[in-house]
Design a protein around this nucleic acid. Structure first.
Length: 274
DNA sequence: GCCCAGGGATGCG
DNA sequence: CGCATCCATGGG
C-alpha cells in the first residue's frame, strides 16, 4: 500500500516493507545506512533516500516511477508470505525477515555485481563495486552512477585488481568484451532456461551466480541460488545431498514459482541467526 | 597460522 | 558426467 507525493513515495503497511531487511538481505550492494532511520540506495544512475517513521516509510527520489518498480510496490507480498507459510521450515525465516521484498534490479548491473560476489563477502563486494563506480561512473551530485558497458570497457584487468577484485578481474574483463556483442534487453524475453544457458557462457558466471542474476536482474522466480549459507540450511533441514546444482533443482521442485522468495528468507535468516 | 565469504574455471579420470 | 584443486583478498 503506497501513495505518491511530489518526489516522494509514502508506504504504510510496514509488515510488507522493512527497509533494513530489504537492503541487508544480501540481494543488493549499493546501499548505505546513514543513520538509524535512513538508508540511501543507488540503482543504475538513480538514487533514493529511504526514511523510516513510526507508521510509515518515505522514499525520496527524483524518479518516483523507477523506484515504484524497483521496490516491486505493485505486488502484494502478504499473499506471497501466506503461500510460503505452508512450508514449516519457513516459519522462523518469515517471522525474522518480515518485510523483505525482491528488488527489480538492472540486468547489466546484476551481471557485473554478482560476478564480483563469487566466493566473496558482502563488505568486500560493496567496496569493490563502489571503487569501480567512482573510477568511471558518471558523478551525479553526491554519488556515482553504476558505469555503462562503454565506461567499463575502458578498464583494464589490472584496474579491477587495483580495486580489489582479485582473480575475478579476468572474468570481469572478458565478460565485458562478450557483452559488447549482445543486446541484453532482447535477452530478457527468453525463458528462464534459455536465459540461464546464455548467462553460463559468460566468464565468472556459474550456476549460482546465474541464478542470482535471473532472480534479481531478470525477475525470474523459478530459480534457487545455492551459496554456502543455503547449503548449510539444506544440510540442517533435509540433509543428504551435497551437490549444489542438485540441491537447487530439488528446492525449485519444492517451492515452484515461490522459489526466489523462499530462498531469500532462508538465506537471510541463516546468515543472521545461524 | 587457519578458516570463511552469496563460487567458478580448469584439468583429470 | 563427477570430482579435486586452484584461485585473491580481508576479517574473524
Amino acid at each position: 500500500m503506497y501513495k505518491l507525493q511530489k518526489n516522494k513515495i509514502i508506504i504504510t503497511g510496514l509488515s510488507d516493507f522493512n527497509t533494513k531487511h530489504i537492503l541487508e538481505c544480501g540481494q543488493v550492494f549499493r546501499f548505505k545506512e546513514l543513520d538509524k532511520s535512513t538508508y540511501s540506495i543507488i540503482s543504475k544512475d538513480k538514487k533514493a533516500l529511504v526514511k523510516s517513521y513510526e507508521n510509515r516509510v518515505e522514499i525520496e527520489t527524483e524518479d518516483v516511477e523507477y523506484f515504484i518498480n524497483y521496490f516491486d510496490l505493485n505486488v502484494d507480498y502478504s499473499k506471497i508470505k501466506k503461500a510460503l507459510s505452508n512450508f514449516a521450515e519457513l516459519d522462523k525465516p518469515l517471522k525474522f525477515g518480515y518485510g523483505i521484498r525482491i528488488l527489480k534490479q538492472d540486468l547489466f548491473e546484476s551481471i557485473i555485481s554478482f560476478i564480483i560476489s563469487a566466493n566473496n563477502n558482502i563488505k568486500r563486494i560493496q567496496s569493490i563495486i563502489e571503487k569501480i563506480c567512482k573510477s568511471v561512473g558518471y558523478q551525479i551530485g553526491d554519488y556515482y552512477a553504476f558505469p555503462t558497458l562503454e565506461q567499463l570497457s575502458t578498464l583494464s584487468e589490472q584496474d579491477f585488481k587495483n580495486f580489489g577484485a582479485g582473480y575475478r578481474s579476468e572474468y570481469l574483463y572478458k565478460t565485458i568484451r562478450l557483452l559488447q556483442k549482445v543486446n541484453l534487453e532482447e535477452l530478457k524475453n527468453l525463458s528462464t532456461q534459455e536465459l540461464k544457458e546464455f548467462l553460463l557462457t559468460l566468464f565468472g558466471v556459474g550456476p549460482k551466480v546465474a541464478d542470482c542474476i535471473l532472480l534479481f536482474g531478470c525477475y525470474k522466480q523459478d530459480v534457487f541460488p545455492v551459496d554456502t549459507w543455503i547449503a548449510k540450511v539444506y544440510h540442517d533441514v533435509f540433509g543428504g545431498e551435497t551437490n549444489r546444482v542438485k540441491i537447487s533443482k530439488q528446492l525449485v521442485d519444492r517451492y515452484g514459482k515461490l522459489s526466489g522468495y523462499a530462498q531469500q528468507y532462508l538465506f537471510y535468516s541463516k546468515r543472521e541467526l545461524g
